[in-house]
Design a protein around this nucleic acid. Structure first.
Lengths: 196, 196
DNA sequence: CGGTGTCTTGGACGATCGACCAACTACGAT
DNA sequence: ATCGTAGTTGGTCGATCGTCCAAGACACCG
């Protein structure tokens, strides 16, 4: 009935196809087939395939940011909060690996697509910003100061999470990954000092 | 003249195309065009495009392993060696970003390709193994023990390097990345204890 | 000389893709 | 009732892809 509703359904269908078959195989035909719509619908709702992918990228970025904020909710001292956040983050990865895999695929796709580089840049800009905010908030509520500049610490955290996720997507070694996250949590703790 | 030589040239040409245009656009025609050979050559030297990509993956893995070993060569105490290794690694990334980008693209490609998952798994298995060896060697030559199990420490190091590289490929913030690597080096130092 | 096997080549095939379009329907406003 | 706009559809176009093949070129061995 509504063109806008069709758009949303197609975006959701595209995301499902991506998780199942990968970004490369997410063709216009595969998407409309997943959404059980005739092929003609596609270019009535989207100017191009790229426009659809762009939409999916922003959705994933926003969803990732929101999820990160939710992960960090909680109480307790700094140590407990960090440990729980890392644990919750990892729960999310193991529960939904395809989503993260698609995220990386889209990042690399955007880096190669003329005019899409900014989209990837904004994606990581958001992630780094969120990590920075959460680290700052944690420091304030715990009454501590980070002994490392916040942007650096945020990049460090973001990198470790990206790295362990990528590595786990390949070899699925959950046990070692959890140990790495525990180690990272302890490291973060050691970078906190009493506030002035 | 030689079928085997053609093979090697095609592999090299394929790698060049990948770095320039990405894995997805590395078609049989693009490769033979890069190598300045007629199209028919391709399926005389390779049974399929997948066979070529498989060959490129193993080359990149081997080259990465060799480069990692070379990066770790050097003298001095543990701190200097770690710092220099991280610095040399990062020099390599900044000097040749495309190569690393292709590496990640191929990993994700392999994860999606039926029967190629093992190739990606072996790739990371090698990397982790090399990091483990280098960390063990460093500990021995410095007369220290790692206070964290070696496989975990290797995965941690591998993850940080992967993560910062990926992040830098997107936002090209060299300054913060170097600080993260410095931080990581100090962290590793803090995980060393005098051997028994 | 003839033949046998390794190269080399241009062209062609079938499949799949993104994109487009003309025709059809439904429905509210005039 | 008529018109116009938004929605809907199946079919089709041109481009590009991986793959294959038949025919020619070359060299070595009998």
């Amino acid at each position: 009935m509504a063109a806008k509703d069709r758009r949303e359904e197609l975006i959701a269908a595209a995301f499902r196809v991506m998780v199942r078959d990968g970004v490369v195989k997410t063709t216009t035909r595969a998407v409309v087939n997943e959404a059980k719509m005739p092929l003609g619908v596609f270019h009535y709702c989207f100017n191009s395939r790229e426009e659809l992918l762009q939409e999916v990228i922003t959705r994933i970025t926003d969803s990732g940011v929101a999820k990160a904020r939710k992960v960090f909710e909680g109480e307790g001292d700094l140590g407990a909060r960090i440990a729980k956040s890392l644990y919750t983050f990892w729960e999310g990865v193991e529960l939904n690996p395809g989503e993260h895999q698609v995220g990386y695929e889209l990042t690399h796709y955007a880096l190669r697509q003329e005019g899409f580089e900014d989209l990837a840049r904004r994606q990581y800009e958001h992630y780094l910003e969120v990590h920075e905010q959460l680290l700052a908030e944690a420091a304030e509520s715990a009454g501590i100061k980070w002994t490392v500049p916040l942007p650096v610490l945020a990049r460090y955290l973001n990198s470790v999470l990206d790295g362990v996720t990528l590595c786990w997507l390949v070899d699925r070694n959950s046990e070692h990954t959890r140990e790495v996250l525990r180690l990272t949590g302890e490291h973060l703790m050691s970078l906190a000092a009493k506030a002035d």
